[in-house]
């Protein structure tokens, strides 16, 4: 039932939570190594999925988020072949949800279309961090605006050793992986959680609802469920 938008990959052995290398028997050093790589859509500046889509269903929003217009998607899956991060999944079946109607937070993705992480654009638009950020028990994720030099995310990328996945491919992801002995503290502190939102849709708040064609295109569907 689940369509994985974000997978925490074990980098190591052939199974989840197992290392590669040799066990340090009898006091020898051993070579075991394991780490985790949370892998979701990297929201590339130069996104191969956007380029190959024959019907422009995959597009880059003005704010940089790469999204899919499920109405336009014809299920050809060129984008899946083009994505070097394996970030996309195809809906082979009719979607199933618990509860049946889903959360209604994000658009329904029907059978036959490709889907992937949206950076929780539906939350970002309301000033919320993506769900993966607010729910990370280790506070290992930071979300913010790279255009703002003073944002936490900008400071971290400036201060620590960071890299982008497969940077030699020239995709220029907007996701950075930070190395080093650090913890981002409590990124959620002082941030709004969803429960603090107004109960009514915030029509008066957004600056520009209709100005961007691609966004309004993505907004054409009635609500559906997420997984």
């Amino acid at each position: 039932m689940g369509q994985a938008w974000n997978r925490v990959l074990t980098v190591g052995g052939d199974h989840v939570d197992t290392p590669e290398g040799s066990y340090p028997e009898d006091g020898d050093g051993g070579t075991l190594e394991m780490s985790y790589q949370p892998t979701a859509c990297q929201h590339c500046e130069n996104a191969p999925c956007v380029k190959v889509c024959p019907v422009n269903a995959t597009f880059t929003r003005e704010d940089g988020i790469v999204e899919i217009d499920y109405d336009k998607c014809i299920g050809c899956r060129y984008c899946m072949a083009a994505c070097p991060y394996n970030a996309r999944v195809f809906n082979w079946e009719d979607p199933q949800h618990v509860p049946e109607e889903g959360t209604g937070d994000v658009e329904e993705r029907p059978q036959g279309v490709v889907e992937k992480c949206t950076f929780c654009s539906h939350r970002v638009e309301e000033g919320l961090d993506p769900s993966c950020v607010v729910n990370c028990p280790a506070d290992a994720r930071i979300f913010g605006d790279f255009d703002d030099e003073n944002s936490t995310v900008s400071k971290y990328v400036a201060e620590y050793d960071t890299h982008q996945l497969l940077d030699d491919k020239g995709t220029d992801p907007k996701t950075y992986y930070i190395q080093g002995e650090m913890s981002p503290g409590r990124p959620w502190k002082g941030k709004e959680l969803e429960e603090e939102l107004d109960e009514e849709p915030t029509a008066e708040e957004p600056a520009d609802v209709t100005g961007d064609e691609s966004v309004s295109g993505a907004a054409a569907n009635p609500t559906g469920g997420d997984d």
Partner: peptide, 10 residues
């Protein structure tokens, strides 16, 4: 990567 930082540009 040890820790993922994600952010928007543009």
């Amino acid at each position: 990567g040890a820790v993922a930082g994600v952010g928007l540009g543009g």
